[in-house]
Simulated scan of single mutants.
Amino acid sequence: MVKNNILLIGAVLGWFAVITQYILMIDNRIASVPETTIRFFSFFTILTNLIVAIYFTVLRLKKTTSLLFRLEKPGVLSAVTLYISIVGLVYQVVLRSIWSPTGMQKLVDELLHSIIPLFVIVFWYVYENHKENQWKFIPSWLIYPSLYLVYILVRGNFSNFYPYPFVNVTQLGLQQVLINSGVLVLVFILAAVIFISISRWISKNPSHSRQFE
């Protein structure tokens, strides 16, 4: 019962943040609605928070579907947690200082980059099946961010729109962007190693239990 309520809260937070951010972006657009929509879904933050919202929603509804089966497979929750953790980390370290949102935008900003990442990390700690987390999962966890990177670089080459300053080829040049991307890949790998290491520790720690099921 407790877990179901937590799943509901996660779903509501996720959908509220993503939908409200879209409305705010449309209201303040500097391009056409179709182009703004494409740009909206070009942010790793948005795509990842959308994944979080879908994850919590599907698990909360508990409908017997192939998607539910996939989301309940070992390592999936850890992958989702890895992605949203990187969203929070990069924002706090790199992006927070470059703009100061106000009003509703500030609330949504904190939801997307701080509150939801922390919420997912706590959920992962309590409800992940840590015994089934394995080192071999890490390469597959890197597929999504790798494909995302290729997408934004290819599209940016044609549209001249880059969602984040550290991948802006126009301003930084391709060589620097590739260096920045390499650093991000290393951050993903390091974070993945940390999550697996924590899982291994938890699985061996008899004091850890799923008391909130």
Rank of each mutant, 00 (worst) to 15 (best):
86 I>F: 05
76 V>K: 09
123 F>P: 00
111 L>S: 05
134 Q>H: 11
55 Y>H: 14
85 S>D: 07
108 V>A: 11
76 V>E: 10
110 E>T: 14
123 F>Y: 09
71 L>Q: 10
53 A>M: 14
113 H>V: 06
79 A>Q: 01
98 I>W: 05
69 F>Y: 09
133 N>T: 08
119 F>R: 13
99 W>F: 10
87 V>T: 14
62 K>T: 12
92 Q>N: 09
136 K>E: 01
109 D>S: 12
128 E>F: 04
74 P>Y: 13
96 R>S: 14
90 V>K: 10
91 Y>R: 02
78 S>Y: 01
50 L>C: 05
119 F>H: 14
115 I>A: 06
111 L>R: 03
89 L>Q: 02
69 F>V: 06
136 K>P: 03
58 V>Y: 00
100 S>K: 15
73 K>C: 04
77 L>T: 03
114 S>Q: 08
134 Q>C: 07
101 P>R: 08
107 L>C: 04
131 K>A: 04
99 W>G: 12
129 N>V: 04
77 L>M: 13
124 W>S: 03
109 D>P: 03
67 L>E: 11
103 G>H: 10
61 L>E: 13
68 L>F: 04
82 L>I: 00
57 T>Q: 11
119 F>P: 12
86 I>H: 08
96 R>H: 10
135 W>H: 09
59 L>A: 13
130 H>A: 04
63 K>S: 07
117 P>M: 15
88 G>P: 02
80 V>R: 07
70 R>S: 06
126 V>M: 05
62 K>D: 15
50 L>K: 10
58 V>E: 13
126 V>R: 12
112 L>Q: 06
86 I>Y: 10
100 S>E: 11
131 K>S: 07
137 F>M: 11
79 A>Y: 04
115 I>V: 02
82 L>M: 13
135 W>N: 09
87 V>N: 05
121 I>V: 02
